[in-house]
């Protein structure tokens, strides 16, 4: 049994849907913990299809972006797929500025993202 403190994990069909507990992902210690929990989905639980649903997330810092990049790399290395959805406009702008919208598969809503796996 894996306990998560920073994420809420559910399954829709074959897709592992991850929601974030924190509205603001900026505290360094929380980001470390978030990274461990996200990487565990791939490395311990062998999840191949991961959807990060950002509903409720109001803020994230560049340190959090770093964890998302590492997760994306781990998912790709495991021949899995990762998508994101429900990203509010301010955070989407962060992805655009850093051009991470070219790296990540970003969809509008959860149903659309799940259908795209």
């Amino acid at each position: 049994m894996t306990t998560h403190h920073r994420i809420d994990v559910s399954k829709v069909g074959d897709v592992t849907v991850v929601k974030f507990i924190d509205k603001k992902i900026l505290d360094e210690a929380s980001i470390q913990e978030l990274g461990v929990e996200l990487f565990g989905l791939v490395e311990q639980l062998n999840r191949k299809s991961i959807l990060l649903n950002f509903t409720g997330v109001e803020f994230l810092s560049s340190a959090a972006l770093g964890k998302l990049i590492t997760l994306d790399r781990k998912v790709k290395a495991a021949k899995g797929r990762m998508k994101m959805c429900n990203i509010r406009p301010e955070i989407f702008e962060v992805f655009q500025i850093t051009k991470l919208n070219k790296v990540f598969d970003i969809r509008k809503e959860e149903a659309e993202a799940i259908a795209a796996f």
Binding site: S62, G66, K99, V103
Partner: peptide
């Protein structure tokens, strides 16, 4: 360098 560490802040 899109996925390289650093510089985003």
């Amino acid at each position: 360098r899109l996925t390289a560490p650093g510089g985003r802040g």
